[in-house]
Each structure stands twice: as C-alpha cells, then as structure tokens.
Simulated assay, not measured.
Amino acid sequence: MALAGGAPRAQAVECRNISYESNRYSICEVDAVHEQLRLFLRDDAGNVIGHFSSLDKQLDAVGQVLSFATNAGMYHADRSPVGLFVEQGEEVMHLVPNAGPGNFGLLPNGIFCIRQGRADVFETLAFRDSGVTCDYATQSGPMLVIDGALHPRFLPDSTSYYVRNGVGTSADGTRVVFVISRNAVTFHQFGSLFRDHLELPSALYFDGNISRLHAPQIGRSDAGFMMGPIVGVVEDKVN
C-alpha cells in the first residue's frame, strides 16, 4: 500500500517470533494511530463469525482484507461474551464488575478499549469510574500487568502451564502488542514478558488453550473450534 505521492507505507501489523527466558512467543505490534483495529462477534445476519476464515471471507466481500487477528476475551458456550463487549459503539454486553467464571474471576480483570487513534488496557473498576467511551471494547481477565506491576496473585513458582494469549498497551495508547505463547507458560512468565521485555505498563489476558492467531506475515492462521470475540486489523484491498 502506498501513500499519496507514492511514498511507501509501513505494514499495518509487524509480526515476529521471539524467544524470551527460554519460552517462545509470536508477537504482533499494531500502530493504533494509523491502523483499523476492530472487534468482531457476529455477521450481518446475526450469526457468530467464529473463525478467521469466515471473517476474512466477510471482509473480502466489501473489498477489505484481514491482516491480523486473534481471539479476544472470554465467552460462554454459545460464544456470547462473559463481560463487557462493545462493537461499533454499541454495547452488546454490559460490564461485569464482580468475579466471574474461571480466570475471569481472578480479580482484578480488565477491559481492552479501542478509540479513535488509540487503544488501552484498563483495570475494570478504573474503567467503570473513568467515563471513557469506547468504539470497541472487550472484557477479560485476569489483568497481567497493572500500572507496571504484575498481577498480585501471580507466583514465580506456579505449576499451571498453558498456551496463553493477551494484549498490552503503551501509556499513550498508540502501541498495541498482541502476544500468543508458542509453548505452555505460567501467568507469571507471560506477564513478565509484557512488563520486562516489551516494557508495557498495562496488559490483559485473553485466554488459554483455545488461543489462536491469524498472522499471514509469519505464515500462520490457526483453525479449530469456533471462537467468540475476535480482534483484528482490517486493510482496504489494493487494486
């Protein structure tokens, strides 16, 4: 894609595979100022989209392409969001301030909020009291990093290992980093990656074993069971 005047434009998403403290991760960084970062749940007919291939097909029909995507928040068996979900400014599911099922109940949990020119991870109660309005939002948990500190219940010697994915944001909301582990890791290891290696002050856990990634840039587009909320970067096709 090129800007007016023929100047080349950087890729919408920068994805890469890394190793950190003997664990392997896939990382995708998004510039929230310039890119179309969105959340998706249902198609125009009201059906759960559920798969990257279905979302890509839906976008293709309107002249767009999915350059990156991952699952984005916890959901019930019918794929409806467990907590807050906002799509195109419309609240589909309300905020849940109290503990919920599974890791969602490992308080504090948080909100991933997309607004014009920025995206932020908020602790849920701080978000509730902030008055911030989101174009897109999803609630998940637990928080991984809260104001530069790891979640207080993460243990360095934990024996709970899973593939995990999540998102971290910079203080000014312009840098958004999505991560999925390529081997099983603990919460402490995963949170430490965001805080110490990526140097992000806020980060939120999305999910564990169902975690999947669509990143054509590194030759990856995971299939599997139907997902609930999906976050992705959309680009207009270039003729």
Rank of each mutant, 00 (worst) to 15 (best):
R128P: 00
V231P: 00
Q189M: 13
S22G: 12
P108T: 07
P108M: 04
I230K: 00
I180D: 00
S170M: 08
L39D: 01
T159C: 03
S26K: 04
G73T: 08
L41T: 04
L41R: 04
V233Q: 03
I146M: 06
S170R: 06
H76D: 08
L3N: 12
P142K: 02
D157F: 15
L59R: 07
A223P: 00
L107D: 03
T133W: 03
I111T: 01
E21V: 15
S19C: 08
R79P: 07
G46V: 13
M226L: 14
A119Q: 07
V185P: 06
D135T: 07
F40L: 00
I180A: 04
Q217K: 10
S67C: 14
R220K: 12
M93T: 14
V121M: 07
A215Q: 09
E123P: 04
G141F: 06
G168N: 02
Q116A: 14
S80T: 14
G63V: 10
Y75M: 05
S140C: 10
F52R: 02
D129P: 00
H188V: 11
G5E: 07
H76K: 07
V233K: 01
E29K: 15
D172Y: 04
Q36E: 13
N109P: 00
F85C: 02
G6C: 12
Y161W: 05
N71C: 10
G50H: 02
G6P: 04
F40T: 01
A215Y: 06
V96F: 02
D129Q: 10
R153Q: 12
G148I: 06
R16T: 13
G148Q: 02
L106D: 08
L41Q: 09
F122Y: 15
I218R: 02
I146G: 01
A61E: 10
P108F: 04
L84G: 00
L66K: 01
Q11C: 15
R9P: 07
D135M: 12
F122H: 12
Y162H: 10
P81T: 07
D44S: 12
G110A: 04
T186E: 04
G83V: 02
G63I: 13
T159R: 11
L200Y: 05
H51W: 05
L3M: 15
K237W: 09
S202D: 13
S221C: 02
P8K: 10
G173R: 03
